[in-house]
Amino acid sequence: MKDNVVIVTGAASGIGEAAAILFAKEGAKVVVSDIQEENGRAVVDKITGAGGKAEFFKADVSKAEDNKALVDFAVKTFGKLDIAVNNAGIGGEANKIVDMSLEGWHQVIDVNLHSIFYGMKYQLAAMQKNGKGSIVNISSILGKVGFMGSAAYVASKHAILGITKTAALEYSAENIRINCVGPAFIDTPLLDQLDDELKQQLVGLHPIGRFGKSEEVAELIFWLGSDKSSFATGAYYSIDGGYLSK
């Protein structure tokens, strides 16, 4: 990872934080991005305190201009862009389709799906100048199966698979790889809003008998970002404790 420049969105907590820390630990220069500035800067402090290199950039990934500004910041600060982890996302409104608000639908699609298109649009342009690159888009197990009460989330995560495959076909000849990771329920702040009973029900959906850990997902993201996965592109990699095997 030495001398590689990495952008991680949604890096103020959870999977994004774990990925940013791991990339930096292995020698990369990391741009930590999130809408939560205080927590994001705390992640940068963790990295730099351990001897790594990182900078924070506040961005709302649902906005095209923020994605462009994020890539411009990475290139201006560290000279180039090698790897991007498009991780930012929200669970959103929990309602059946008839009861879901239009605002709730659009918010999830904006944050979870439009952000992937906006991010890749500017990330790919920067990587083309290098003649190589790797993008890791974070989908979900719900990019493969349905889940009641989460139509917008499920739709957005399914769509991420499609845009990942298409981008991989379009840019493989330019030595830019694009892959997709599908975590199951991971023990992150996103689950803090759930009560203990519901948490236990969700744990029961995983044959391995527990939620995943952010650090476990980060290891897969790191592998896909690195040259060790040089023949992997256009693929979906689940990390789900057996969830999709049922």
Score class of each variant (00 low, 15 high):
V32N: 05
N95S: 15
N67A: 10
K213E: 04
F23A: 07
L113T: 03
L190D: 08
E170P: 03
A69R: 01
K121N: 07
G40C: 01
G149Q: 06
S140R: 00
K76P: 09
D240K: 06
A50M: 09
V85Q: 09
Y153P: 13
G242F: 09
V108Y: 09
S238N: 14
E174K: 13
S230L: 08
A159C: 04
L220R: 03
H106T: 14
I186G: 02
M100A: 11
G204A: 08
E219S: 10
S226H: 10
D196M: 10
Y118W: 11
D110W: 11
I21L: 13
T188C: 06
I160C: 08
S172L: 15
A59P: 07
S134E: 10
T188L: 06
A19C: 11
K144I: 11
K246D: 08
S229V: 00
A64I: 12
K199E: 08
I135S: 07
E216S: 03
F222T: 04
N179M: 13
L102T: 13
V43S: 02
D192P: 01
F231E: 05
S172K: 14
K76H: 07
K157N: 02
R41E: 15
G16N: 02
I35Y: 00
K2F: 01
M148Y: 14
K129P: 09
E215I: 04
D45E: 14
L22M: 08
V181F: 03
K76Y: 03
G225A: 06
I116E: 12
D34W: 03
V108T: 12
I176S: 05
Q200Y: 07
I208D: 10
H158V: 00
I138H: 08
K96Q: 12
D66G: 06
G16P: 01
D82E: 06
V181G: 07
S140P: 08
L22G: 04
I7V: 12
A11L: 05
Q193K: 15
